[in-house]
Design a protein around this nucleic acid. Sequence first.
DNA 1: CTCTTTCTATACCGATCAGTACATAATGAT
DNA 2: ATCATTATGTACTGATCGGTATAGAAAGAG
Lengths: 193, 193
Amino acid sequence: MVRPKEFDERIALAAAMQVFWEKGYEAASLSDLTQRMNIQRPSLYATFGGKRELFEAALKAYVQSSLTYIENQLRSDPSVKKSMLAYFQGVIHGAGGSNPDFGCLCVNTMVELAPHDPVFADITGDFQARLTELFQRTIDHGIQSGELPKQLNASSIARVLTLSAIGLSVTMKTKPDPARVEHAAAEILTLLE
Amino acid sequence: MVRPKEFDERIALAAAMQVFWEKGYEAASLSDLTQRMNIQRPSLYATFGGKRELFEAALKAYVQSSLTYIENQLRSDPSVKKSMLAYFQGVIHGAGGSNPDFGCLCVNTMVELAPHDPVFADITGDFQARLTELFQRTIDHGIQSGELPKQLNASSIARVLTLSAIGLSVTMKTKPDPARVEHAAAEILTLLE
DNA sequence: CTCTTTCTATACCGATCAGTACATAATGAT
DNA sequence: ATCATTATGTACTGATCGGTATAGAAAGAG
């Protein structure tokens, strides 16, 4: 056809995701975004539609890659307990290129936007549901392998693990004593006994 | 002296707290604030210093009243388990004039401001520490009364309860199925057995 | 080459932001 | 009643916000 784009949409989207992650939706200005994405303002509008649409795309990409990453982590060890612990350690110390100071983009969005915008309530609610399902499947697997006791209420415990992961990602933003938080994480996992 | 103020500082501060609670710090504009506080802009600056100082004052007032409310709730029933459950029910369904859609002002602040501002990391970190202490004292009390088993790790469990409360207040913003969340809360409290 | 199409770059738009200057109104002191 | 002092109300400031008009640059098609 004609003049090709001079940038890679996926790379630009990943850069936008980082900015929203670090600053939040409102606090991320178009100047911040275009600068970090290395594109000009009209290119952003032509490609993504606008700030809100860009954020929606970035958040959805985050949900996808985050869940994929977690799924792999929950399969990283034959022991369910060990891989669960590894997951929580990752939330506490940062994993997959994430900085615990900025928590989870999805959790941040629940706080900032979900109460005022049903679209983001849906997206972030879906994230929680899928994460809970991941936990539940992992617990079920552990029960089947004999590592975990049969009488566990896998569904409720999975929901608790999701709640705990959210709580952890928030609490880490206040830079608490890591040892204390690790003890708490270990205590949470006693629910699997 | 001279012309007296035409408004009550405490009432105005409570109104400001509500606005920050509903909208967050950045999204709360001075127009929002002065309107809900029923004062003029220069009065706000003369009395509180500025938007940031106003927020700081509102947050500190929130921490104080919130902890007092929770302390009373944790003493509301001779049974530690029952009063703990009552507390979590309050987080889920709203209590003390709070709307679960907007969660906890302190949690919201952890997400929005703590990573970028050590002052608010301190205030919100302090809130968590004091809440954890409240939980721990409650657990200790339950152990002494014989309601809870002696071998509980009160310190770690208290930390988990704080984490869970934070997670709950965030998750409620996405309007999940209340029954599911209540089951999870009940599961958390099995840590007390 | 020339034309057409699409992207890029600059510069701009009205709106809104937090914060303030200034004139007026209201009170206690004298 | 007059003055000093403080609060109020209006109107403004420069800066920044998200979004866009417009002109020029780059590439394929003929």
